[in-house]
């Protein structure tokens, strides 16, 4: 790509993926759909020079779970690609094949929000302890610890004088 990447060229290029808005100087937000996130990242990588993933943020919006992929390139413009997933079936394709560091963030989100990333080969528990119940996701807004659930650690029944 010979033309320098500016906010305008990015807006022009990313329009096909959804609503593009410039949030502030050097920050662009694109609202897209889960099916197109793979293409959106491929495009921004190949055409617009976004080569680095800062992080994947997750927000619980109540009815939906929102994922934001923040990418940056050598032009120092940040693009945030946002997708929303239904709460009862939060499944989205993985992007760890495009951006290697994403694998870590995806596993972390899987643990804390219960979002499944299809195609991530290593979707194991990483952040919570071994005994944590598999169907409870602590960072969801409606989660509260159950009174009779064992969340790991040590069960202390009675302390002997040891």
């Amino acid at each position: 790509m010979t033309r320098p990447v500016t906010v305008e060229t990015i807006t022009e290029r990313m329009k096909e993926f959804g609503v593009v808005e410039q949030v502030r100087k050097n920050r662009i937000r694109v609202k897209t759909v889960p099916d197109r996130i793979h293409d959106a990242i491929t495009t921004s990588q190949a055409m617009l020079g976004f080569d680095r993933l800062i992080t994947i943020s997750t927000v619980d919006n109540g009815e939906t779970l929102e994922l934001l992929y923040h990418l940056i390139g050598s032009h120092r413009i940040i693009i945030s690609l946002s997708i929303e997933l239904p709460r009862d079936k939060p499944v989205t394709p993985t992007v760890s094949d495009l951006l290697l560091p994403a694998g870590i963030y995806e596993r972390q989100i899987h643990d804390l929000f219960g979002i499944t990333f299809e195609g991530n080969p290593n979707m194991k528990k990483i952040i919570l302890n071994e005994d944590w119940p598999g169907d409870e996701f602590p960072l969801r807004k409606d989660w509260t610890p159950g009174p009779d659930v064992f969340y790991g650690g040590i069960r202390v029944e009675k302390r002997e004088g040891s």
């Binding site: 009174p147 064992f150 969340y151 650690g153 069960r155 202390v156 029944e157």
Partner: peptide, 11 residues
């Protein structure tokens, strides 16, 4: 009553 007190999680 100290019997059966669990210290795992504070609700």
């Amino acid at each position: 009553d100290t019997e059966g007190k669990s210290c795992t999680v504070i609700p």
